[in-house]
């Protein structure tokens, strides 16, 4: 490890804070909060599901912000942040789809209930996995950054359209309405978990962005005999 790579503490502090809050919030949600009137104990899934949903959307929105910032500024720090936000967004969206399926099974008897929010998340999940794949297959850093920024903007523009199409499709099929919102009697575990996952997400994105920057540095500073190739990239 080179000495000039500082070891900033902020992301680790955020991760630690997130873990503590998540444990506390989940404890309250699982054991202290009263069971919901209709859903019973199954409703406790909401205390982790809803915070995940908020943060997944937040991560993907941050990816969009990074994409636009990169296209306007051309600064590779935004590219690193975008890569980080996309990857963490994919993780959260994947968790969200799993939790949604686990919620739907006891509630409606099917794993997938075509809830517009859940379906939109699934579409966005696959779109973002596609962008991560694109990044893997493009070797030129400038092209990789520009193309994935373009693809991120295009994928994000799909969100409202997918949402409306699934909503209409559902209303025509007269399926059950979307999951009931969390009972008003106990908001505390929900808020705690929301901030917990927010802290975890921020810590993850910061660390992952640093990883992306390090990788780019190594990519641009290959062994001496490859220096000619770098000249062409610049």
């Amino acid at each position: 490890m080179t000495p000039n790579h500082r070891f900033p503490r902020a992301p680790y502090a955020l991760l630690a804070l997130g873990v503590i809050l998540l444990l506390l919030g989940s404890y309250l949600g699982l054991f202290v909060a009263p069971p919901e009137h209709f859903m019973g104990d199954v409703q406790r899934i909401m205390y982790v599901h809803v915070p995940t949903a908020w943060n997944a959307l937040l991560a993907m929105t941050f990816a969009l912000v990074c994409a636009i910032a990169f296209l306007f500024r051309g600064d590779f720090r935004w590219d690193a942040r975008m890569e980080a936000a996309i990857e963490v967004g994919v993780l959260l969206a994947f968790l969200l789809c799993c939790q949604g399926a686990i919620w739907a099974k006891p509630t409606w008897g099917v794993w997938w209930d075509w809830d517009p929010r859940l379906t939109t998340t699934a579409v966005l999940l696959f779109a973002f996995i596609g962008i991560l794949a694109l990044r893997r297959f493009v070797d030129d850093p400038v092209r990789r950054a520009t193309w994935s920024a373009v693809a991120t903007i295009i994928a994000y523009a799909d969100v409202p359209i997918v949402y409306y199409s699934v909503t209409w499709w559902n209303s025509l099929h007269q399926l059950q309405s979307s999951p009931a919102t969390v009972s008003k009697s106990f908001h505390l575990p929900l808020r705690m978990n929301a901030f917990a996952i927010l802290f975890l997400m921020t810590g993850f994105i910061m660390l992952r962005a640093r990883l992306a920057s390090l990788r780019l540095e190594h990519e641009l500073a290959p062994p001496p005999h490859e220096l000619d190739a770098v000249g062409e990239l610049a």
Binding site: L124, G130, I131, A133, L134, F137, V138, A155, D158, S165
Partner: peptide, 19 residues
């Protein structure tokens, strides 16, 4: 792209045109 041509197009396009 030099690699993965066949795979990338559907991977990027299909989720987008779900609506």
């Amino acid at each position: 792209t030099t690699r993965g041509k066949q795979m990338l197009l559907p991977l990027l396009l299909f989720p987008l045109i779900v609506p």
